[in-house]
Design a protein around this nucleic acid. Sequence first.
DNA 1: CGAGCGCTTGATTGAGTTCAAAAATCGTGG
DNA 2: CCACGATTTTTGAACTCAATCAAGCGCTCG
Lengths: 192, 192
Amino acid sequence: MFSVFTDYLKEKIPITDEQLKKVEQLFRTKKVEKGKILLQLGEVCQYTYFVTNGCLRSYVIDDKGKEHILQFAIENWWISEQVSFSNHEPAMYFIDAVEDTEFVQTDEQGWNEFHKIVPAALEMNRKLQMNSLRSFQKRLVSHLSASGEERYLSFIKTYPPLALRLPQKMIASYLGVTPESLSRIRKELATQ
Amino acid sequence: MFSVFTDYLKEKIPITDEQLKKVEQLFRTKKVEKGKILLQLGEVCQYTYFVTNGCLRSYVIDDKGKEHILQFAIENWWISEQVSFSNHEPAMYFIDAVEDTEFVQTDEQGWNEFHKIVPAALEMNRKLQMNSLRSFQKRLVSHLSASGEERYLSFIKTYPPLALRLPQKMIASYLGVTPESLSRIRKELATQ
DNA sequence: CGAGCGCTTGATTGAGTTCAAAAATCGTGG
DNA sequence: CCACGATTTTTGAACTCAATCAAGCGCTCG
């Protein structure tokens, strides 16, 4: 599954085989079972994860005990608690495995060396950060301006692969509606 | 008003008078009247703004024609359309002046030279970016988990200066409730 | 001084939640 | 491979928070 990662890199940045060999040393392959928690609330996040197979997610638990999903990461996606990772602060949310998952991870030192070996990686990183920021902005706006149904339609349009493989209750949690409401939304849409 | 900016820098990063003199060259002071639009939807954002007096805001207009405020920036706050600025993409939102406002601005080149003169500015920048990301994350979570009243209470607790000087309808827009609802929320809270 | 804007208040409506229970699906051990 | 228990999804009914529509008040500023 490591090749998923190297293929990704080759596509995203110009990189020689030699550089790639060095970079591979910096990333560790890991396998976890569904449900495994990779990052606990309050811990300092030490790693960024790149999923090569399976699905990870980040989520919070609010004062009423309810889960709210912030991000999913399937194959070829990165996930991390970026602020905790970057500022060395306690994490504000959890990361766990939605399915049995294989991923590669690296820590801050790994990133620094990566950047030394391939300067273009800095640029890739900048873009990833902007993508993440934009995605949170868009989600916020969708909550300020759209109904549950509109958010669901936008979700399945934007992330068809997620819509197909995730349990509905997780999509509901991501969208900010109850599973019951999502069920009704889908029923309503099906009759059209 | 430029001193507001230099005082800010002196507080945030170790900087010699000599360095400061060079950095000052990179920032232009500007004055705009209430209502002045600094960034139009669809334009590429060329500047980041640091408010020395007054108040700026960023906002979107949705398909139904309604405004939704993303950020406010009063004295000592930065504001920009970061993704547009960083990626040289069309802006997804507007920036305008809520009050008559004085600010300093710089463009990408300015930032690059700033970083050359004072390497610690890179670190400041990183922190600003993380603050912004965290703030969007927190707002998203507050929409996933809290009522309008809870969001209002959290707002006035987090940003007392904003709560005092902004028109209520702008606070409502920021919180994602109608002005009518905010009025009722405040009435309700006042009776306690 | 008048027009317009911002805030308030009231009445009504509606989207989505909650609580409850049935139906469908999944996973696991025998 | 089937059977059983657990989890997920669906459906129903009552309810709630906030939006909408509408009208009136008060202030400001042109």
